[in-house]
Amino acid sequence: MNSPSLEKLTEICRDVRADIVKMTAAAGSGHPGGSLSAVELMTVLYFKVMNHRPNQVDWPERDRFFLSKGHACPVVYSVMARAGYFPVEELITLRKCGTRLQGHPSCKALPGIEVSSGSLGQGLSIANGVALAAKLNKKDFRAYVLMGDGELQEGQIWEAMMTSAHYKLDNVCAIVDYNGLQIDGDVEAVMGIAPLAQKWRAFNWHTIEIDGHDLAQVLAAFEEAKATKGKPSVIIAKTIKGKGISFMENVAGWHGKAPNSEELQKALDELYGREN
């Protein structure tokens, strides 16, 4: 795949945001908030960082991506479509009966999804397992896993954090979409996870803190993680839930609610300007 410039990535991010609101609006349900917060993270990962072949999903040498916060599949579907895994036109089938784009991702339905997810807290363990297999087989591929901040309340994550460090899985890169909101409200009010970076460090992880909407910072963080040997890396990406759509930004209510047609038009106007 050609490596796009940051300017080009900015354009892709805008199209991905439009996809997310269009898909969820057409479905009448879905999770726009935590998809919009991860747009830069996923776009940089799929267009700049991962070694993968959209036309050969079972390529054994590919880097693996696991969406632990499965509800954020709209952003992953959009990035996959725009990277060439399937036609962009198919995005509008999200959540429709018979679609390959299940409401939470199914690896049986859609080639290119590594594993089905949707029950929170499980992705890091899976990434550890595939990373162990890579080490055993002397393969160089890496395992990436995107987690939500609210998701970190699941105990299995902390079990898996120990495992990654214990087995020195430097081919694991965790990404925390730290948007600060979950369904019931502020993460810190529902069940606090701060101080987050200190916790990861205490679990023997190489910890990188960035602005998750700054493409250059995101790219640099992935490069730093890749260069870190002997321990796993986590990118704690400070983000804004609903980022890019003014009325969705920092509103927990947009976690799992689709825009209506008026809201969709308003969102697209914001992304592309009135003339669109």
Binding site: E114, S125, A160
Partner: peptide, 16 residues
């Protein structure tokens, strides 16, 4: 950590 063990096993299976 039984839950992590099953998840790790899933990843190993994905790795062949």
């Amino acid at each position: 950590a039984e839950q992590d063990m099953v998840g790790t096993a899933a990843g190993l299976a994905l790795g062949g």
